[in-house]
Nucleic acid binder design. Sequence first.
DNA 1: GTCCTTATTGTAACTTGTTGCAATAAGAAA
DNA 2: TTTCTTATTGCAACAAGTTACAATAAGGAC
Lengths: 143, 143
Amino acid sequence: MTCTPTHLASQIQEHGFRLTRQRLAILNILYDSGGHLTPTEVFQRLHVLLPGVTEPTVYRNLDFLRQHGFIHATSTPSGRLEYQIVTHSHHHLTCKICGATIEFEDEHLQPLFARLEEMTGYHLSEHHVTFMGFCPQCKSKGE
Amino acid sequence: MTCTPTHLASQIQEHGFRLTRQRLAILNILYDSGGHLTPTEVFQRLHVLLPGVTEPTVYRNLDFLRQHGFIHATSTPSGRLEYQIVTHSHHHLTCKICGATIEFEDEHLQPLFARLEEMTGYHLSEHHVTFMGFCPQCKSKGE
DNA sequence: GTCCTTATTGTAACTTGTTGCAATAAGAAA
DNA sequence: TTTCTTATTGCAACAAGTTACAATAAGGAC
């Protein structure tokens, strides 16, 4: 999957969607951040670039970009969504006691995907995955 | 994991937490529904049983019960959370075109859990998993 | 039963996210 | 370029979810 805003912009147009200033700015913001952003964070940065832009536009575009696979959404432990440019995807595992979070690559889920596709006949295109537990340090203390 | 409201109520007290009317009513509502409920749905039903109850109490209790493992939360494709009594857990795989949803048992994720625990040293206690893709019928049509 | 501690609740104000609809502007066609 | 179509936007009102803090009530001690 390609990941520069320019390339994504071309793809959006090739798919017959319109490339608006708002949409392009959101792609640039996500790309420049280099990580996860909440809709509110995107809105705050977008508001600097394009002062007239409103929240619904941010939410609608994030959802649009996600639905069509141009960006990824990951769900936080509290159930909120964070968005990022699709580069190489990763997931989080958070300690419920000390909050220590480690990341693991998407590719570790590949065997699971293959198995699910085989079982169900579906072709998988999106997934939201969050894990929580106890890190080695806190594990001994129990809950 | 046990799953009747009465048993869960005992567990809550054994852990040193207080068993309030609100908390017990929420457990009963989730149990009676037999499936997933959104916080709003819980609130609407709770409002009938205990007219004075407010939204923050619902959200706080659902989060409390989830954090301590008395109930499960599953994240919907749109990023919202739905709650259910812990019986045997399952997950969803939804077609992005026709919306057809199939369920698969939690146990299919067990090999993944084992692997993650081995890799990371963490003990896993919670996970939120949602998959989307294209069902066999829609798959041929492409996206 | 009464008293005490404090976890839990309700209230009010707030933030975040959504929806309907008219106005706008992107992209195609002439 | 100008015109046309309609996807996308901004606006306004609303729905969902959160937070701070004082009031309440659960559960233990007596």
